[in-house]
Design a binder for these strands. Structure first.
Length: 414
RNA sequence: GUGGCUGUAGCUCAGUCGGUUAGAGCACCAGGUUGUGGACCUGGGGGUCGUGGGUUCAAUUCCCAUCAGCCACCCCA
């Protein structure tokens, strides 16, 4: 058994779970389209540089979580740990600046070498949207609104909370960073070991530490909002105004810091308390610096990504599979006519379960097991009359119907 | 990567203070019903008790290691 196990942190997705995930993607995609987004995909692997250059040398994702290997052509390849960098790369290599602004959504597998837990897999799936080319706050507002609308239509809005923060522009962040590091250095012996390590690499992260000692120090730390310049402040105000206008409620969380380096201004997360410590269900923000970091022209962008598994878990029970019509032949001479009838019904749009063995009783059992809405029985008698027996499997009522009228007769079971 | 809990049939779980054929419910298969499913009845198949090693006359049970899942940290979707 041991070597038949799927690799650590991966798992098979069987139909029940697949339906749940598919529903998430279908609903999210349908909503995203209403907001002007179009479905697209980038490759599952890219040159490692795509991620290394953009996600930041200090991020955990780059430093310890990437699936990177050298392929037979000696290229250094990485399985994508997220999709924003890939979309940005695509934006440049496809010359999409010509078509800016662009709005894309994607769905697919991502890979991160982490210690697995429920809701945290090494191969997991994300649905995300990217809005590239719009510098103004309206883009941020619409991006958040798209996410909120999706959560609402999935029926999980009341299980999630939107947390919002601003990271300001580069100037504001640099100014704050300097002051913060200075403050933290003065109280360095009160900080946890992890936070001391983070002090140089990524001091903003310390604001989000769960360590008690750290929290005490953080509580008295200088506040970012005091260091926002006018531009950054005005931007954030407009975002908040827009959310208010759309009745999207949120909770300001000044400690909300995105893990990746390319973010600026708006940062947000939809979180839930129903999933244990894997509570982030959808997260994103503005990444005006990203395309520049990849060597392209300064290009604004906003987006978010959502964990499909996490959303599906939040949604609870998977939707039921579509109920088929069971076609059951009786006797050898009915097999071929049953095959032809099945084909005809399928062409007409029905889902058909054609049993392949067993007597009538066994096939009826199977019809029941696959949750068929109706059974069509064709045997010698029916064949002689060019008809089939149509049995409603819920009520148990049955009648004989001429083959020619079947497609219509079945309409109520569609 | 750190700390902890768990691992017995396809699933959910009993059980063995170390002892001979390891159980239940559900699921599955067959029959009761060779032109009628769901309910019911009868019977049946399925486990090297996660894997490897150690202790022992004897290990599914104790010990160690390992793998996997889960929880918290970490990180995040």
């Amino acid at each position: 058994m041991s070597n038949l196990q799927p690799a650590r942190g991966t798992h098979d997705i069987l139909p029940d779970e697949m339906r749940a995930q598919r529903r998430v993607v279908d609903i999210a995609g349908a909503v995203a389209e209403r907001y002007g987004y179009e479905f697209m995909a980038t490759p599952i692997f890219e040159f490692s540089q795509v991620f290394k250059r953009t996600l930041g040398d200090t991020s955990d994702i780059v430093t310890k979580e990437m699936y990177t290997f050298t392929d037979k052509g000696d290229d250094e390849i990485t399985l994508r740990p997220e999709n924003t960098a890939g979309v940005a790369r695509c934006y440049m290599s496809q010359g999409l600046a010509q078509k800016a602004p662009v709005r894309f959504f994607y769905a697919g597998p991502m890979f991160r070498y982490e210690r697995p837990q429920k809701g945290r897999l090494r191969q997991f799936h994300q649905f995300g949207i990217e809005n590239i080319g719009i510098p103004g706050a309206f883009a941020d507002i619409e991006v958040i609104a798209t996410g909120a609308r999706i959560l609402d239509e999935l029926g999980v809005a009341d299980k999630t909370v939107l947390e919002l923060n601003t990271l300001g522009d580069g100037e504001s962040r640099d100014a704050y960073r300097t002051v913060l590091v200075e403050y933290l250095e003065n109280r360095i012996d009160e900080l946890s070991k992890e936070s001391r390590d983070r002090l140089n690499r990524n001091p903003l992260r310390i604001l989000d530490s769960k360590d008690e000692g750290d929290r005490k120090v953080v509580a008295e730390a200088p506040v970012f909002s005091d260091y926002l310049n006018n531009t950054s402040r005005a931007f954030f105000d407009e975002v908040r105004e827009g959310l208010a206008a759309l009745d999207i409620s949120y909770r300001l969380n000044p400690r909300l810091v995105r893990g990746l380096d390319y973010y600026s201004h708006t940062a947000f997360e939809f979180t839930t308390e129903y999933l244990g410590s894997q509570g982030t269900v959808m997260a994103g923000g503005r990444y005006d610096g990203l395309i520049g970091m990849m060597g392209g022209p300064a290009t604004p962008g906003v987006g978010w990504a959502a964990g499909i598994e996490r959303l599906a878990m939040l949604c609870g029970e998977a939707p039921a599979a579509r109920r088929p019509i069971a076609v059951v032949p009786v006797g050898e001479e009915a097999r071929m006519p049953a095959l032809k009838l099945s084909e005809e019904l399928r062409r007409a749009g029905y889902r058909v379960d054609l049993g392949h063995s067993g007597n009538l009783s066994k096939r009826m059992k199977r019809a029941n097991k696959v949750n068929a809405a109706a059974a069509l029985i064709i045997g010698e008698d029916e064949l002689a009359r060019g008809a089939a027996t149509l049995r409603d499997l819920d009520s148990g009522e049955q009648e004989e119907a001429p083959l020619a009228s079947l497609v219509d007769r079945l309409a109520r079971f569609r």
